[in-house]
Nucleic acid binder design. Structure first.
Lengths: 123, 123
DNA sequence: TCGCTGGATAGATGAACGTCTAAGCAGAGC
DNA sequence: GCTCTGCTTAGACGTTCATCTATCCAGCGA
């Protein structure tokens, strides 16, 4: 759990990596990036990220997340841990409750990677 | 294997889905989209997509792909099948060789999903 | 201090995954 | 028709994953 919650601007790390379709990914980067995509490769986790990122105020209490899914509390906790380890979300404990928020830099990085270059740019 | 190879413009399906951070993903969409992310969640497959999408001419022969990886031919074939079933790539046989190309609509759809809305757009 | 609540961790279990070797199939050329 | 090459499919095997129940830990209030 880091302390500083970033504002959801999406301008921090727009262009760390070139788009997938512009030049091949280096093997070293592939492992790192694939881990992030793998974290998103589960319906429950994808919905979790979406709920967290789209929530008003930019952060959500776990207690608001758990009842929205059919799986058990520990399972949600496990999925949140996977997403956190992938760098997609972060959290902080405040008293009894734990709050999660999205890390826009990581989302933007992945989005930029999948962006297909415009025709004018490639030829 | 479908017959028509689309040009890599990336303008076809810019906005099928709202960004993740704009509104929660519907459970029905989540399964579909998570499958695509899961397909990208393997280093070998991520590099395959990258090599295919960034290749000059927009398509690659399998024979050019296989020697660039440490895994066996059947394994590459398996990964290509997974990517094809996820709708990320498509292929066509031409005589002895099989050619693969990226499906820009799917890449753009995923990119749009991960796009973090600009601050001016949300408030 | 004691009990309650919110959430994380530990361990178990069945399913899915990544990889391999062996075999099959489709074209091309002799 | 036969054989060679390129690629896919089939089946096996060990690992990883998603989920559960049981347990633990942290903070709060009486």
């Amino acid at each position: 759990m880091s302390k500083q919650r970033p504002v959801l601007t999406g301008t921090e790390a727009t262009g760390c990596c070139s788009p997938l379709a512009e030049q091949p990914i280096a093997a070293a980067d592939a492992a790192d990036l694939a881990a992030a995509f793998k974290a998103l490769g589960d319906p429950t986790r994808l919905q979790l990220v979406s709920l967290i990122a789209s929530h008003a105020g930019g952060e959500v209490c776990v207690c608001d997340l758990t009842p929205r899914f059919a799986v058990s509390g520990p399972t949600i906790s496990h999925h949140l841990k996977v997403l956190r380890q992938a760098g997609l979300i972060d959290c902080e404990r405040r008293g009894t409750w734990v709050y999660y928020w999205a890390v826009p830099a990581m989302l933007t990085r992945l989005a930029g990677l999948l962006q297909v270059p415009q025709p004018a740019a490639v030829r």
